[in-house]
Design a protein around this nucleic acid. Structure first.
Lengths: 226, 226
DNA sequence: TACGGCGAAAATACAGTGTATCGACATGAG
DNA sequence: CTCATGTCGATACACTGTATTTTCGCCGTA
């Protein structure tokens, strides 16, 4: 019996670490949404028993926190931004792009404090970009206001994306009708302003709409930063 | 055996309707969060078997949609608002107050399209208040931007509220330290701007912070409408 | 009054979940 | 070579959403 006959690691289980676990969970979530992430499935993907994971996380929410922090690593800007406005803008767009890559992020964003290393690093980079432009409280308010905007906007965008996908309707068709139920509701005449908005509104690209609202908010912030 | 000996409804199960079901679900969620809402528990609270509910809803998400729409009924403004700004402001504050009464709303807000009668009525009232102030697209952008802001802000506020509650720390204590982990992280010196913000920032009342950010966003909207 | 048939409610069943507990076993120390 | 240790897997439990089957009370008819 030579070495070649023996498997490389006789009965040794595959080594595990948080990185591998989180990567498996992210992969599952990317494929089937957050609902597809179960400890059993994550473990199975790593050729391990479910209980094995509890050596690295102590609860499922821990895993979600780690997943979010992993995405923050993708968001973290590489180089120092030109100015505060560029910093906030790129944070917003970066988060949005991350959410389009990992739609489940929309379900988690803002749902728990982001205290992981990458989340903190993003906060640090953002605050650093605004440092000294105003008193600390004003700077905080600025960051929080912009964050609130893009968090909410991303959530809505992903929600609508899913709704469109659920009904087989084309995007513009959906935009105009939003399914039979809303069509019927609008036909009752009880919602004239809404009907007008749906009927007369031109279809606007999601990214452009996101960007426009963002610039408005940035303008508002600029007015306070002086 | 007279009528008096017989119970009023011999073996007849209690009558059910959506309103009762949703009320029970809301009560459960108010007490123990969304996680405390299970079809079995909702049914039990109505002295019914779990399967009974499927005559009124066809999935658990349906129930969530109905719960959200029930809250929109609380948010729906009574009288016609003075101007567009007042309309958007009161929508934002009304939603926030609703979320403070029903914290689970923060988990659902923005997570599904609000197509129920009350949700549509809120949209209608909001759009009506802005009708004619600008072209339809601009009005839509305004409403969506403000909604994105307050949705995100509410979610963050509730999230922080829960985090504070989870650690037994007092509010100001939390504000300054955010638990041992963050304290340790800040002590590493890797997050100077963040450390400064946490250390020098004065504690700001949540409602005031919400209101301030909202006024900024409303200013930005005003600049485009006017 | 007796009897079917029917519709609704209940019971049961199933596949899956997060997590606690316990038993076995491979590995390192003596 | 033996024994302690600590890690991993199997098992177990209480619970979930939902499909399917069973039961049963009521109503119209004979």
């Amino acid at each position: 019996m030579t070495v070649w006959d023996r498997p490389e690691q006789p009965n040794r289980p595959v080594p595990l670490d948080r990185e591998r676990i989180v990567a498996a969970a992210v992969a599952l979530a990317d494929e089937g949404g957050l609902a597809a992430v179960s400890l059993r499935k994550v473990a199975a993907r790593l050729n391990a028993g479910p209980m094995r994971l509890y050596g690295y996380i102590s609860t499922k929410d821990d895993l979600f926190d780690l997943m979010v922090d992993a995405v923050y690593a993708e968001i973290l800007p590489g180089e120092r931004p030109g100015d505060w406005r560029e910093a906030l803008r790129s944070l917003a767009h970066g988060t949005r792009r991350a959410a389009l890559r990992h739609e489940w992020l929309a379900d988690l964003l803002g749902g728990r404090p982001a205290l992981g290393p990458n989340g903190l690093a993003v906060s640090e980079a953002t605050l650093a970009a605004l440092d000294g432009l105003a008193d600390v409280d004003t700077v905080m308010r600025a960051v929080e206001t912009v964050s609130a905007y893009f968090t909410g906007a991303i959530r809505r965008e992903i929600t609508e994306l899913r709704a469109e996908r659920a009904t087989g309707l084309s995007k513009s068709e959906w935009q105009r009708a939003r399914g039979p139920h809303v069509t019927r509701m609008l036909a009752t005449g009880r919602f004239p302003a809404l009907a007008k908005a749906v009927h007369d509104g031109t279809h606007v690209d999601a990214e452009e709409s996101f960007a426009t609202g963002l610039e408005w908010v940035l303008d508002a912030v600029a007015a306070r930063l002086g």
